[in-house]
Nucleic acid binder design. Structure first.
Ligand SMILES: [Mn+2]
Ligand SMILES: [Mn+2]
Ligand SMILES: [Mn+2]
Ligand SMILES: [Mn+2]
Lengths: 226, 226
DNA sequence: GACAAAATTTAGGCTAGCCTAAATAAGGAT
DNA sequence: ATCCTTATTTAGGCTAGCCTAAATTTTGTC
């Protein structure tokens, strides 16, 4: 069906997919920041993506882009590769969870459908990667996932960690040292306004931890009704 | 030490290494054939490879190229990636031996040194890939390997299959159907001059097989003194 | 040793993807 | 509504890698 797309194109589509989830439409500058390239270069690329047949994005000048159904299909395919690879590196090869993202970022573009199928099977058709990110299934259907960020929680509320943004290796190492990993259960023991610090006590950990908003914004949880 | 080389450069160096083993110096046309690109393009690339610092090939106009020590180091690094990957795909992911080459050809350029180290360890620091090709060790030292081709053998001589060229998936499937795989023991039962057909009986196989020179040239064996 | 065939190089051109600098459009404050 | 800032696009340029067609060198044959 789809002929070969370049690695660059695949990375653009993956990035646009991610940005659309939180911001609706992806702007030139946002894409440029994530991909660490000049905004002018992004303009050139999204023009191309919007004029392929079929178009991969819908582009309105000065208004940014959204993915077309075909663009989304490609993005989900790459995201499936990426997250399956992360889990494979973590589970099968013993990588630490802060190193899998960088490796998967390159591998995602070169593995075949057979490779994808074989690691999916070896891992038992998993639904979530090591950071709790949902893995689209074979038909590219995305499992539901927590959207409540830890920043919104308040004292005496409790829940489980579901998902942690995976782009910052140092943060990931820090968090796992504190026991803040998917499935960990915690209770909020403190909140300070103005600086928006949140203190949580994670089950099985000796001490509570204070987390600033730059961190809590990156953590998604499932709240328990209690 | 070495900064990033492109996939294309790595494939050139790997190809030149291979060609040098059998032909001494690699010619423009030979490289072009293996890589399936126009000879004119090869000329352009080998000029570049010969003028990098340090140079990766030694180029004499109209006389082809040989690898410099640095070029050979890079080639061996990629060949180690390739062959470790082939074995990993074969052993760990259950690929058939005719499909591993194509997949490894892409993966070899993107895996990190950590990935290399982890699969090497998982496989027990192997010395040979699924086709019997030698895998350079961590220090890029190439294990010794059989250089006697099956084509040179004659009736009543026997030996074991050591190595089969891996570039033709159809041939690989055919050979494994006949039990012609590394470590298989066989005896030569026939030879016909002019057409250079060789008949061998492989241990454990019901019938002898006649193999033409196009095939026997691709198979390397260890002869048994008998 | 001349000459044709084969191998190789040169010349000119193309696409993908990036860049910087300059021009323009959008949005917010007054 | 105007001004200013910020976002975006346009213009022009660069490298990597490929291509074809034409020129040139090498080589094998007589
Ligand atoms: Mn990527
Ligand atoms: Mn992840
Ligand atoms: Mn390759
Ligand atoms: Mn092989």
């Amino acid at each position: 069906m789809r002929d070969e797309l370049t690695h660059a194109v695949e990375d653009y589509l993956k990035t646009i997919y991610d940005l659309s989830l939180t911001h609706g439409r992806a702007s030139t500058t946002q894409i440029a920041e994530v991909l660490e390239i000049a905004p002018a270069s992004v303009t050139g690329m999204i023009k191309r993506l919007s004029t392929t047949r079929p178009p991969l994005v819908e582009y309105i000048k000065h208004r940014g882009v959204i993915l077309t159904p075909e663009g989304e299909r490609v993005a989900l395919e790459i995201i499936r590769h990426h997250r399956l690879l992360e889990l494979f590196l973590y589970e099968t090869l013993g990588y630490s969870w802060d190193k899998v993202d960088a490796e998967a970022d390159r591998l995602e573009h070169v593995i075949s459908e057979e490779f994808e199928a074989r690691i999916a099977e070896a891992l038992g058709d998993p639904t979530h990667d090591p950071h709790g990110d949902p893995i689209p299934d074979k038909n590219l259907l995305m499992p539901s996932h927590a959207k409540l960020s830890l920043r919104e929680m308040r004292p005496d509320q409790c829940g489980t960690i579901q998902r942690v943004r995976d782009n910052d290796p140092d943060l990931l190492r820090y968090l796992s040292e504190q026991g803040i990993v998917p499935q960990a259960h915690f209770i909020v023991t403190g909140y300070t306004p103005f600086d928006n610090n949140i203190t949580i006590l994670v089950d099985g950990q000796p001490k509570a931890v204070v987390l600033g908003p730059r961190i809590t914004r990156q953590i998604f949880v499932e709240q328990e009704n209690g």
